[in-house]
Amino acid sequence: MGLEEKLPSGFLLTTVEQASGWVRKSSVFPATFGLACCAIEMMTTGAGRYDLARFGMEVFRGSPRQADLMIVAGRVSQKMAPVLRQVYDQMPNPKWVISMGVCASSGGMFNNYAIVQGVDHIVPVDIYLPGCPPRPEMLMDAILKLHQKIQSSKLGVNAEEAAREAEEAALKALPTIEMKGLLQ
C-alpha cells in the first residue's frame, strides 16, 4: 500500500486518516472463511433478509488476495490452523479479523484435543463475537463496530502513538483474578 509511505505530518495527517478510514470502512471485502455452523449464519447474513449489501460487503471474495476482512466463522481444528494462518498471510494489508462465534473466540464447548482454543492463538483478532452461532444481527453489529474501528484507525506516527498507549493501558489493567464483586 502506497499511502503509508507518502504520509504528511501534523493536522494534515489527521485529515488523511479520516479520509482513508472512511474509504476503507465503506468498501470492506470479506474473505470466505466459513468453517462450521457460523458459516451458515454468515451466508444468511449475506442473503436476502439481512442483506449485507447495505454496508457494501455482500461480495465475499474467494481469493484471500482480494480480501481485507477475514470472518473466522466456526471452530478451528488443529489441522485447519496452519491453513488459516496461510490464508491470513496471503491477505494484503490493511486487514482485519472478526472471530465469529464462541468456538473461534475461545474454543467454546469443544475444550478438547482437536480444537484450537481460540483463533487468537494464530491470528490477531479485532472483534470477538459471542454466540453459538451468533444471530445475523449480531454479526452485523460486529461488522458495524469494526467499521467504527476502521474509521478511527490511525496512520503513521499517530498509529505508533496509539499502539504505545494501548500497550500501557493493557499493562496497567487490573487482572481478572484481583477484581472484586460480581465482575459484570
Binding site: 475461545s106 475444550n111 478438547n112 484435543y113 482437536a114 482454543q117 481478572t176 483474578i177 477484581m179 465482575l183
Partner: peptide, 18 residues
Amino acid sequence: FPQRKDYPLGGIAIEYKG
C-alpha cells in the same frame, strides 16, 4: 490415537471471572 480411553480429552483449564 485420540479416542482411546487412555488418551486424555486434551482440554485446558479455563479462567472465568478469576
